[in-house]
Protein backbone atom coordinates (compact mmCIF):
# COMPACT_ATOMS: atom_id res chain seq x y z
CA UNK A 1 0.00 0.00 0.00
CA UNK A 2 1.47 3.35 -1.01
CA UNK A 3 1.76 6.28 1.37
CA UNK A 4 -0.76 9.03 0.84
CA UNK A 5 1.09 12.32 1.24
CA UNK A 6 -0.03 15.94 1.13
CA UNK A 7 2.61 18.58 0.39
CA UNK A 8 1.76 22.13 1.48
CA UNK A 9 4.06 24.92 0.31
CA UNK A 10 3.50 28.33 -1.29
CA UNK A 11 6.39 27.66 -3.72
CA UNK A 12 4.53 25.96 -6.56
CA UNK A 13 7.71 25.06 -8.48
CA UNK A 14 9.00 23.30 -5.38
CA UNK A 15 5.70 21.47 -4.96
CA UNK A 16 5.60 20.13 -8.50
CA UNK A 17 9.16 18.73 -8.51
CA UNK A 18 8.83 17.27 -5.00
CA UNK A 19 5.54 15.65 -6.00
CA UNK A 20 7.11 14.18 -9.14
CA UNK A 21 10.06 12.73 -7.21
CA UNK A 22 7.89 11.30 -4.45
CA UNK A 23 5.51 9.79 -7.01
CA UNK A 24 8.52 8.06 -8.62
CA UNK A 25 9.11 6.53 -5.20
CA UNK A 26 5.68 4.96 -5.13
CA UNK A 27 3.81 7.55 -3.12
CA UNK A 28 0.42 9.05 -3.82
CA UNK A 29 0.99 12.77 -3.63
CA UNK A 30 -1.44 15.66 -3.46
CA UNK A 31 -0.32 19.29 -3.29
CA UNK A 32 -1.65 22.53 -1.82
CA UNK A 33 -0.11 25.96 -2.40
CA UNK A 34 -1.56 27.59 0.71
CA UNK A 35 -2.34 26.57 4.26
CA UNK A 36 -6.04 27.17 3.65
CA UNK A 37 -6.05 24.92 0.59
CA UNK A 38 -4.11 22.30 2.57
CA UNK A 39 -6.57 22.39 5.46
CA UNK A 40 -9.46 21.90 3.06
CA UNK A 41 -7.70 18.94 1.43
CA UNK A 42 -6.94 17.35 4.81
CA UNK A 43 -10.59 17.69 5.78
CA UNK A 44 -11.72 16.06 2.54
CA UNK A 45 -9.01 13.39 2.19
CA UNK A 46 -7.29 10.65 4.13
CA UNK A 47 -3.57 11.33 4.28
CA UNK A 48 -0.88 9.37 6.09
CA UNK A 49 1.52 12.30 6.25
CA UNK A 50 1.47 16.03 5.63
CA UNK A 51 4.72 17.76 4.66
CA UNK A 52 4.20 21.37 5.60
CA UNK A 53 6.26 24.49 4.88
CA UNK A 54 6.78 26.50 8.03
CA UNK A 55 6.97 29.97 6.50
CA UNK A 56 4.05 30.75 4.24
CA UNK A 57 2.30 34.03 3.63
CA UNK A 58 -1.28 34.50 4.81
CA UNK A 59 -1.16 31.65 7.33
CA UNK A 60 2.18 30.34 8.56
CA UNK A 61 3.05 26.71 9.16
CA UNK A 62 2.74 26.86 12.95
CA UNK A 63 -0.83 28.15 12.74
CA UNK A 64 -1.59 25.61 10.00
CA UNK A 65 -0.13 22.84 12.20
CA UNK A 66 -2.42 23.86 15.09
CA UNK A 67 -5.44 23.70 12.83
CA UNK A 68 -4.38 20.42 11.19
CA UNK A 69 -3.93 18.79 14.59
CA UNK A 70 -7.26 20.18 15.77
CA UNK A 71 -8.98 18.59 12.78
CA UNK A 72 -7.05 15.31 12.77
CA UNK A 73 -5.00 14.73 15.95
CA UNK A 74 -3.44 11.49 14.65
CA UNK A 75 -2.23 12.98 11.39
CA UNK A 76 1.57 12.93 11.13
CA UNK A 77 3.10 16.25 10.12
CA UNK A 78 6.67 16.82 8.96
CA UNK A 79 7.69 20.45 8.78
CA UNK A 80 10.00 21.83 6.11
CA UNK A 81 11.66 25.16 6.57
CA UNK A 82 14.18 27.47 4.98
CA UNK A 83 15.27 29.12 8.19
CA UNK A 84 13.51 28.04 11.35
CA UNK A 85 14.41 29.72 14.59
CA UNK A 86 15.00 27.45 17.59
CA UNK A 87 11.87 28.98 19.13
CA UNK A 88 9.77 28.04 16.09
CA UNK A 89 11.18 24.51 16.11
CA UNK A 90 10.35 23.98 19.79
CA UNK A 91 6.87 25.41 19.29
CA UNK A 92 6.26 23.08 16.33
CA UNK A 93 7.37 20.02 18.31
CA UNK A 94 5.15 21.00 21.23
CA UNK A 95 2.24 21.24 18.83
CA UNK A 96 2.85 17.66 17.72
CA UNK A 97 5.02 17.92 14.60
CA UNK A 98 6.92 14.71 14.01
CA UNK A 99 10.03 16.31 12.61
CA UNK A 100 11.49 19.58 11.39
CA UNK A 101 13.59 19.27 8.23
CA UNK A 102 15.61 22.07 6.68
CA UNK A 103 15.42 23.14 3.05
CA UNK A 104 17.03 22.11 0.77
CA UNK A 105 15.52 18.83 1.92
CA UNK A 106 17.33 15.51 1.86
CA UNK A 107 14.91 13.41 -0.19
CA UNK A 108 16.34 10.15 1.12
CA UNK A 109 15.77 11.21 4.74
CA UNK A 110 12.28 12.49 3.96
CA UNK A 111 11.28 9.29 2.15
CA UNK A 112 12.72 7.13 4.94
CA UNK A 113 10.68 9.06 7.48
CA UNK A 114 7.48 8.75 5.46
CA UNK A 115 8.06 5.03 4.87
CA UNK A 116 8.61 4.49 8.58
CA UNK A 117 5.30 6.20 9.32
CA UNK A 118 3.65 4.16 6.60
CA UNK A 119 5.10 0.90 7.93
CA UNK A 120 3.79 1.69 11.40
CA UNK A 121 0.36 2.58 10.12
CA UNK A 122 -0.14 -0.20 7.59
CA UNK A 123 1.36 -3.61 7.27
CA UNK A 124 2.89 -3.10 3.87
CA UNK A 125 5.58 -1.41 1.86
CA UNK A 126 5.09 1.10 -0.94
CA UNK A 127 6.23 0.24 -4.46
CA UNK A 128 9.35 2.29 -5.05
CA UNK A 129 10.61 2.39 -8.65
CA UNK A 130 13.77 4.09 -7.41
CA UNK A 131 14.59 0.93 -5.47
CA UNK A 132 15.13 2.72 -2.18
CA UNK A 133 17.33 5.43 -3.71
Amino acid sequence: MSANVLLIDDETDFLSVMAERMTMRGMQVATASSARDGLAKVEAGDFDVVVLDLAMPEMDGVEALKQLKAKKPDLEVILLTGHASVKQGIEAMKLGALELLEKPADMKALIARIEAIQAQKHDGRPENIMGGK
Binding site: F14, G82, A105, M107, M130, K133
Partner: peptide, 28 residues
Protein backbone atom coordinates in the same frame (compact mmCIF):
# COMPACT_ATOMS: atom_id res chain seq x y z
CA UNK B 1 17.58 40.35 5.34
CA UNK B 2 15.55 37.45 6.76
CA UNK B 3 12.98 37.71 3.97
CA UNK B 4 15.77 37.59 1.37
CA UNK B 5 17.41 34.62 3.13
CA UNK B 6 14.09 32.79 3.14
CA UNK B 7 13.58 33.40 -0.56
CA UNK B 8 17.11 32.33 -1.45
CA UNK B 9 16.65 29.13 0.57
CA UNK B 10 13.52 28.43 -1.45
CA UNK B 11 15.40 29.04 -4.69
CA UNK B 12 18.13 26.61 -3.60
CA UNK B 13 15.50 24.07 -2.53
CA UNK B 14 13.89 24.14 -5.99
CA UNK B 15 17.27 23.87 -7.76
CA UNK B 16 18.16 21.03 -5.40
CA UNK B 17 14.95 19.15 -6.23
CA UNK B 18 15.46 19.65 -9.97
CA UNK B 19 19.00 18.35 -9.58
CA UNK B 20 17.58 15.39 -7.65
CA UNK B 21 15.11 14.76 -10.44
CA UNK B 22 17.97 14.68 -12.95
CA UNK B 23 19.77 12.17 -10.74
CA UNK B 24 16.60 10.09 -10.53
CA UNK B 25 16.28 10.10 -14.31
CA UNK B 26 19.95 9.19 -14.76
CA UNK B 27 19.47 6.29 -12.35
CA UNK B 28 16.41 5.12 -14.25
Amino acid sequence: STTACHELKNVLAIINENNGLLEDMTFM
